[in-house]
Nucleic acid binder design. Structure first.
Lengths: 235, 235
DNA sequence: AATGGTGTAAACATGATGTAAACACACAAG
DNA sequence: CTTGTGTGTTTACATCATGTTTACACCATT
């Protein structure tokens, strides 16, 4: 998959939390951590969590209570983290529609295999939900993030190279905010910028010739001398 | 759930098979049984199986071989039935994308809870597929998802290999959205993509020679340099 | 005016893509 | 078992797209 899955680890015990996060980070997942229900809700509200590793024993809210709360509003993947002695609660958790549980101490290899399989299922179900188009509009233009194409106000399709597209979407997504070359180059490739690097300038130039009415006097992509560029198109 | 889920129990041992079937039947599921790979294939070919309980030890084909075979062509739920001594194979099974395993003798309550949760996920992913048209049309062509065949605008039947079909259906189902090679290879087989893997490129090439008016200048399947491919046929 | 930043044409280098051919493997037929 | 067939995968190489560099003119700021 192009996008890394986002995993939320909820555990009050620092040791297990770090261990879990470590495993997942090594595998290239994006990991967030929470110590309690409040922090969990805060991260979960971001709306892009794919899998929750949820400790069944927490100081404030019971893990099972949180499980119920989350399940009520979401089909996110949930794996309960349990101790050796939680036998009964494990079954209860499964019956409350937790997808799985692991027992501390866990086998990393099995844990990762299970997580991966579950993520596959979660994502498969989510695709149709994200099916709505992601389109950024400005000054009559529309930039389709799925199609990776740009439509002119007249309706014609304008072809953009990968670099031009990355640059334009970064600018439009941050419209009104000045982005440095360093910043833009990071969006483009993941690369450090040094003062002799003119890549961004050249690409901005090519972009202007494609979308500006008068490329010599740009109105959409403005230069901020000594800093970088800023997108000033109206919505 | 409106329709009863269909569960296929594959086990050569009569005792475990009957035990498993019994549990599921009590819960109101529709259960089929198979003693070996051949019988399994026969039932599975019916196309309406939601969950397979697959013994990891079978007389003829290895359970893992069957697992691989099924996974190659389907996202059906799979729970491996293992003995106490199969520790290593359990992990291997998970890594071959089995959803779960149970250890004989199993706790009926846990088994049923796990099955129920998995069925929920399997069905969630399947609903949109069934709800959608089973025939996808574009530019005069029609792709029959049940028949796994393609009809040309002139009415002739064009033969597609499994790989070509998987690729084309993935592209058409996501028309207008750019799919990465990673993405496409995942539809094709369940396999990770690495930059040296040219399988997708070759298959796309073969596909183009079958459906494009001018394969040298493709209009249906467009290349998005540095990203992947996108289907741009009109409906 | 001096200095460093920016625009841009042109050349360049490199990695991505198209594709033929060889290969590997499973399966079916003899 | 052996042979043949279909098909996915790998290899190899020609070609292409495009990001990057270079060079120089021009501009902005001091």
């Amino acid at each position: 998959m192009t996008n890394k899955a986002h995993i939320l680890v909820v555990d009050d015990d620092l040791t297990s939390r770090v261990a879990l996060s470590g495993y997942f980070e090594t595998e290239g997942y994006r990991v967030s951590e929470a110590e309690d229900g409040a922090q969990m809700r805060s991260v979960f509200a971001g709306g892009d969590v794919d899998l929750i590793m949820l400790d069944i024993r927490l100081p404030d809210d019971d893990g099972l209570t949180l499980l119920k709360e989350v399940r009520k509003q979401s089909d996110v993947g949930i794996i309960m983290v349990t101790g050796r002695t939680d036998e009964v609660d494990r079954i209860v958790a499964l019956e409350m529609e937790a997808d799985d549980y692991v027992i501390k101490p866990f086998s990393p290899r099995e844990l990762l295999a299970r997580s991966k399989n579950l993520l596959r299922r979660v994502k498969a179900a989510r695709v149709p939900a994200i099916a709505d188009e992601r389109v950024l509009s400005f000054a009559g233009w529309s930039l389709d993030l799925d199609k990776r194409g740009l439509q002119s106000p007249e309706g014609g399709e304008v072809r953009l190279t990968r670099g031009e597209f990355e640059l334009l979407s970064a600018l439009v997504e941050n419209k009104g905010r000045v982005l440095t070359r360093d910043n833009l180059l990071d969006h483009l490739n993941h690369r450090e910028w040094d003062p002799s690097d003119r890549t961004v300038d050249v690409l901005i130039g090519r972009l202007r010739r494609k979308i500006e009415v008068n490329p010599k006097d740009p109105s959409l992509i403005r230069t901020v001398h000594g800093i970088g560029y800023v997108f000033t198109g109206v919505h």
